[in-house]
Amino acid sequence: MTSVTTDISLPADWRDFWALTKPRVMSLVVFTALCGLLAAPGSIHPILGFTAILCIAVGAGASAALNQWYEADIDAKMKRTANRPLPAGRMDRESAFQFGIGLSAFSVGVMGVAVNWLSAGILAFSIFFYAVVYTIWLKRSTPQNIVIGGAAGAFPPVIGWAAVTGDVTLLPVLMFALIFLWTPPHFWSLALYVKPDYAAAGVPMMPVTAGQKSTRNQIFFYSWIMAASALAPWALGMTGLIYGIPAMLLTLVFLALAFSVWRNPAMETSAMKPEKRLFGWSILYLFLMFALLAVDRMVLA
């Protein structure tokens, strides 16, 4: 792959390295990992718990840095990513690559030595999955990139759980499933209103390859499957009413917004088109669902 820029005119500073970690995305990763840790049975020393969450955060930053290292050419063609450190010419690709590899080794190594090697192994696999399976293999080759690649962002609560228990049982698998099935409607709603960016960059996102109607259909379909996974912990008796009732109401709102996207016959031009409403709600939805699950489990314990 050719470099985006051959003349690095501006030196990178700490803010550029921080930007490589995608801190806004990292915040959701850290939160779901923390909820997985808090929901787990048993206890963990606060210092080890902090270390586990720190390692997960650093691992997420490593994945993001490697993603931007590989996708510098794509980022340069998209308005919302053109000012990132690499396409903007503030950093060379080798520095981004070394930064990502260094963070990966640090996060996995510290997690293994300080916490346990199961959580470290899952963390290592999640970094590999995002950087190699999703970024290098899937993203440029198939419109199902988000569906399969969504697994990368679904690992943090499993890692948090494993950090406490040293094992993986059904509830962390359901947490994984919720994020995994949430990812397609979340990202495809974004892709619907930034379709020109993806088209310009040659990324085969669903709206570009299959069109808006098919994308809206799939958003609605995946929203229903996600709803089932969201309510499964309550239905299976793993959580109580603190999670169950609010989760049902929040999920109904999600489905209502997905329905408005599905029935939208043409892309609206208003600032609050259905796709934007669903995308915005989906972020808040996941935060609230995991917060409720963690609180419910702590109260039940």
Rank of each mutant, 00 (worst) to 15 (best):
S104I: 02
P85W: 02
S260L: 08
M111E: 08
I242G: 10
Y285Q: 08
L288E: 02
D296V: 05
W69M: 12
G36H: 06
G244F: 05
A191T: 00
Q98N: 14
K213L: 11
P233E: 01
W234I: 11
L241P: 05
G59M: 04
M238T: 07
N83L: 14
R24L: 09
L118I: 10
G150Y: 00
H45I: 08
M26D: 13
N217I: 07
F128H: 04
L20M: 08
M206Y: 09
L300G: 01
L293S: 07
S126I: 02
L54K: 08
A199R: 12
A258P: 14
S189Y: 00
F128L: 12
L190H: 01
F106P: 00
V168D: 06
M248G: 14
L10Q: 15
V194Q: 06
L257W: 01
W69C: 10
L278F: 00
V168Y: 03
W281G: 00
L181S: 09
M248K: 00
I225W: 13
F180R: 13
F220G: 01
Y70R: 13
M206W: 03
I225L: 15
P246A: 09
L48C: 06
M111K: 01
I179L: 15
S214N: 12
M91W: 09
N83V: 06
D13I: 02
R90P: 06
A163I: 03
A294D: 10
S214R: 11
L255R: 01
T169V: 07
T81F: 09
T135E: 07
T269H: 08
A301M: 13
V132T: 11
S104T: 09
P207A: 02
M298N: 12
I225T: 13
D296T: 04
S9R: 15
R93A: 15
I47H: 13
C35E: 03
T51F: 02
D73L: 07
S141W: 10
Y285F: 14
L34D: 05
L286F: 08
F259P: 05
K213D: 12
F259M: 04
T209I: 13
H45A: 15
A72E: 14
F129G: 06
T51E: 11
P207N: 02
A258D: 09
L123H: 06
V30I: 14
V194G: 01
R263K: 15
W281M: 08
N145W: 07
M26G: 13
T21N: 00
W69K: 09
M248C: 14
F106N: 01
G237K: 07
C35I: 11
T5N: 14
R15M: 12
N264W: 06
I136V: 15
L171V: 11
L178Y: 02
Y222L: 05
